[in-house]
Design a protein around this nucleic acid. Structure first.
Lengths: 151, 151
DNA sequence: TATGATGTTGACGTTCACGTTAATAATGGA
DNA sequence: TCCATTATTAACGTGAACGTCAACATCATA
């Protein structure tokens, strides 16, 4: 969460850098996916370039795991909390609290990994099907080519 | 396309077998994903069990490649045409037509495969990220455990 | 300092992939 | 033959993830 780079980008350039529209960025913020964006002189939002990776992460989870923005939000919030833990960002919580938080994060990440493995397996099956199909098509095309030669 | 098994199932049982609702089945037919379903006595639809695989295929393409039903329809229609070609289902088209059809099908399948490869690569990256994250969490959790021991 | 590009907050619109309901008809077993 | 179960069409409803528009504010620069 803590920005490593200065918040220099305005929403237009930031959105282009992320490959989305400004509307999408505002929508993500509204849904709690980007937390409070600092504003210069209390008006326009400013984005630090390291937030680009966060938006791309959102889109990846969306596209690759079929997660809703709500699921993604929950995951990011938890990750942010762990990150805050590490940098002692907020008042050092009790050992129990830290452990619970970490256990939750471990649980969540494990679930994500399981999902990833399942998807990869399904994709491999699909790959096999498609490769078989392709070779059958090529064989048919070759036959048809021979007929054509003999015209 | 040509059913290998008799159309015995009514829509309720068929939908259950596919893991969807009857509404979904009717919707797919309406969108041209299942072509004309034979009806006994001109009223109720009857499904042959081999159509289950087709519905599962639709859901896979939807979930794994993020395709719209329209994209899937186009792919299935093309595949059906090639299958019809093989079984001489409709009037033997000209050699040129057959070749064009096959070329289209080869093109489409190649595109699908490309998409599959891209997704698998992205998934592998995500897998690495998640595994790294998980081991970091576990390390943190271990630290916290030691603090706890020293209470 | 004028002005065109860019940003802001609502609020309503849109698309996809179905869900739900209603009013009616067909099926199949006691 | 009766009647509970299942199916049929038609129509409207829904949630997610934005798109679009209006009415206004602010920024950068000539």
């Amino acid at each position: 969460m803590s920005p490593q780079t200065a918040p220099t980008l305005r929403i237009g350039q930031f959105a282009v850098a992320c490959g989305v529209t400004p509307r999408t960025i505002r929508f993500y913020e509204q849904q709690g996916l980007l937390s409070s964006i600092p504003r210069q002189t209390h008006t326009m939002r400013r984005y630090s370039p390291d937030l680009i990776a966060r938006v791309e992460r959102i889109q990846h989870l969306q596209a690759l795991l079929d997660w809703s923005l709500e699921d993604i939000r929950a995951a990011l919030v938890l990750e942010d909390q762990v990150a805050a833990l590490r940098t002692q960002y907020y008042q050092n919580p009790s050992v129990i609290q830290r452990q619970n938080l970490l256990d939750e994060a471990i649980q969540l990440t494990t679930n994500q990994l399981t999902r990833v493995y399942q998807r990869m397996e399904s994709l491999q099956n699909l790959q096999r099907d498609l490769e078989d199909k392709l070779s059958r098509y090529r064989a048919l095309r070759a036959e048809s080519g021979r007929e054509d030669d003999a015209r």
